[in-house]
Simulated assay, not measured.
Amino acid sequence: METVGNLGLWAGFSAIVAIMLAIDLLVVGGGKEHRVSFKEASVWSLIWISLSLAFAGGLWWHLDGSVGREIANTKALEFITGYLIEKALAGDNVFIWMMLFSFFAIPAELQKRVLLYGVLGAIVMRSVMIFAGAWLITQFHWILYVFGAFLLVTGVKMYWFADEKPDLENNRLIRWIRRHMNITTEFHGQHFFVVKNGLRYATPLFLALVLVEISDLIFAVDSIPAIFAITTDPFIVLTSNIFAILGLRAMYFLLAGVADRFSLLKYGLAIVLMFIGIKMLLIDLYKIPVGFSLAVIAVIIGASVWASLRKEARENQA
């Protein structure tokens, strides 16, 4: 399994993640009831993006001094491209979380707690999936074609059904949980479980958390193979993925109030998945340069956002 990640890089990355999570939990108050304002979400989004870019710069500096400028340029560009892909595809997570919180009527001051545990679970789950995926690729090269075909089909389906919304009322998982667990109809602060009359009950907050984790698992199945299309280095795949995930809560609260303005973004994300799927299917015939991939992905996302805003402006004028 070829990787630029040595013990020092892994330790540095782990320390950064641990410190930032500790700051969120102990200093910012991630475990307290708290309504996140647009200003706070903007500041934290800027912090996470700046930290991610600083990590890319630090990685480039380290590799430039240890293995040479060419590898440093390549790996830094792979990190930024993987980060952008994950950030873009995470936009779908935001739309789903909005529907989940609306369906379960989760108060705004409790949403941060659900997403806190959702992100912690996503870090563990994605780490396992990435190392498993990297091992599979080293053992079975042909699995890249499977990933490519899967991404291409997923992109086509996402484009075709972009306007359809999930029917949470008839969701099989929710119905199964409600049949097999005692569920309260009311909230009990930040508690996921409460004891009433000697019986243990789950609260609606727990149901929302389960669906948040499931939604992330579903989207991880798309996004992780997409980053493997850029690089098979597990260090780059994991770090770009985790940095994007760490900033996902701030991104949610930043976009929650304006998500409806980006009605065409899903079509752009679908096209991105199709492009990456084609790139992976062509990997042994023609390797599309990482810089070109980054430019294409940025243009597609930027164009879909611009088209969404133009569409909204025309509708408002009408």
Results as ranks from 00 to 15, higher is better:
T3K: 02
F13D: 02
S14M: 12
I16A: 14
M20Q: 05
G29M: 09
V36F: 00
S37M: 00
S37L: 00
F38L: 09
K39G: 09
V43H: 04
W44G: 00
S45C: 15
S50R: 02
L51Q: 03
S52H: 03
S52K: 04
A54H: 01
H62T: 15
G68C: 08
T74N: 11
E78N: 11
L84I: 13
A90W: 01
N93E: 10
F95Q: 09
I106T: 10
A108Q: 13
R113H: 08
R113L: 11
V114Y: 11
L120E: 10
M129H: 03
I130K: 01
I130P: 00
I137F: 15
W142M: 09
L144A: 15
Y145H: 12
V146R: 04
G148H: 02
A149Q: 05
L151W: 10
V153N: 00
V153C: 00
V153F: 00
W160G: 03
A162P: 04
K165I: 10
N171K: 09
L173K: 11
R175C: 07
I183R: 05
T184K: 15
G189Y: 02
V194N: 03
N197M: 04
R200W: 08
Y201I: 06
L205A: 09
F206M: 15
F206A: 14
I214G: 06
F219Q: 15
S223R: 00
S223V: 01
P225A: 10
A226I: 04
I227K: 00
A229W: 11
T232V: 07
D233F: 03
V237F: 03
V237H: 06
V237K: 02
L238C: 01
A244E: 01
I245V: 13
L246F: 03
G247W: 02
M251Q: 07
F253A: 03
L255F: 09
A256M: 11
A256T: 09
F262N: 06
G268T: 07
I276E: 07
I288F: 09
I288H: 07
I288K: 08
V290A: 12
S293H: 12
S308I: 07
N316M: 12
